[in-house]
Design a protein around this nucleic acid. Sequence first.
RNA 1: GAUCCCGUAGCUCAGCUGGCAGAGCAACUGACUUUUAAUCAGUGGGUCCCAGGUUCGAAUCCUGGCGGGAUCACCA
Length: 536
Amino acid sequence: MARELSEQERRRREERRELEAAGINPYPYAWDVTAHAAEILEAYDDDRHGAPGNEDGKAVYRVSIAGRIMSKRVMGKAAFFHLQDSSGQIQVYLRRDDLPEGFYNTVFKKLLDIGDIVGVEGYVFRTRMGEVTVHAERIELLAKALRPLPVVKEADGKVYNEVTDKEFRYRQRYVDLIINPEVREVFRKRARLIATMRRFLDERGYIEVETPVLQPLYGGAAARPFTTHHNALDMPLYLRIADELYLKRLIVGGFDGVYEIAKDFRNEGLSRFHNPEFTMMELYVAYKDYVWMMDLVEEMIETIAVALHGSPEVPVGEHTISFARPWKRIPLFDAIEERTGRQLYGKRRDELAAIARELGLEIDDAMGAGKIIDEIFGEFVEPHLIQPTFITDYPVELSPLAKRHRSKEGLVERFEVICNGKEICNAFSELNDPDDQRARFEEQVRLALAGDEEAAREIDEDYLRALEYGMPPTAGLGVGIDRLTMIMTNQPSIRDVILFPLLRPEQPAEPSPASPAEAPAEAPAEAPAASPPGEG
RNA sequence: GAUCCCGUAGCUCAGCUGGCAGAGCAACUGACUUUUAAUCAGUGGGUCCCAGGUUCGAAUCCUGGCGGGAUCACCA
């Protein structure tokens, strides 16, 4: 049942017993925190703060802090340790003779470890070596750690024993956050990014709404869904792959602007750029088109870059990306021509396939004209677009929810923003002609029947009914929050901007001990191995 | 799904052509009342990812599996 404990774990449990025997609760209830490490370091000033007992007329800077012991240096009757709270680390100094009888030798030296959470009350001073430090007058254990914390040390900018194992860091993100300060910073920036975006949208009067995660029909994107089941109604449900169709119903309902920042779920492979659940912001604004939306996107993302970096310039890998407006805007076909020398607009499917093959791509018969164009773009153009770039005007067959282009036959009014070689936004003038929408849905169903696993299988009749009541001209936008965060925080993998990315389970699928299925499941597994020699 | 790389103490890692499983940090005992990768002396700690195989002998070689990473495929 219980896993075997390591030597250090056994010792910490023994310490816990000794603490309890000494009348110390290893898990007490609260601690009055009056200051954090970062603000103490910032506020401390030799000219204004003195030490108790000095007749120097300076004020004593008293603090009460709490956090985790990250290092411990005992030197006879005095000791130092570093305490880490949410703001950072600060050194604590303690002397045997300043503390209650027996505390230093028995409790501090023997029973408190790196990783334990303590409260410290004392006054701030500066050591001989110049480090601002809290001189402890009271220390209390606030939570005993029963597992040893990996000890990361640092000197002269070099880090020793850094935990680099990605698996360890993703599976035990709590430990990663404790020992890697830059990880905390990434997720603070992610929070600030979302907060900035939300404020930007709220200031413009758009309403934040919540639409169903569990949907009887899924739509709004091309992707395979996760399927689940509702017991009481005995019906299948899908986890949403996009919010789009519900948000546009709300535009029909009379809101001028709605947005949602929420998780979508797509039943696809995992990669540096894909996690099965990911965060998307979708925005729909009535009486606007995709040209207007480009202006809004530029302003919003520039605002975010400035909020996070103090400037629109963001370092990403070996590049510096500038989100300063305006960004380059180029039609899809012109972008392809720039890179390949081929103008594809107006070409038939067989001509496109021939060009793609000349360019060295593998084309199979199942690929439509739009798909081939998309392949060429993805191979020859997209990776080269480092600075944020609007790619506009896509083939209609790639965009079943976008409105036909007002002047270019066969295209829709759609743009994507490509940045650092990847799509971060997708937007269009929304299709609001219900009959055209029905025809596009029917085409999707046809593709699904022909084997396209990502095309919608069923027509969303309720959505068409909504459009038939009349939807104003509308501009729509989707922003991949995770990918935008990767760029804004300079992280190469989506797993580094998602706190708990999906991993395979650690245990190779053992039946849970609580499961009644365990006994019957194990019995037949053992029987064949045991029976041939024994029975017969 | 394919290919390549990785899996050894709590953490970081060494361990060659097969020959007693190691180092630093952490831990433990002792010394040290302003240290800072504290220092000094000593001690303990291992399912070498799992299961087979080869061999007198496997952390090491072989096969299969599990887990992770990277690249590719997939991903409008």
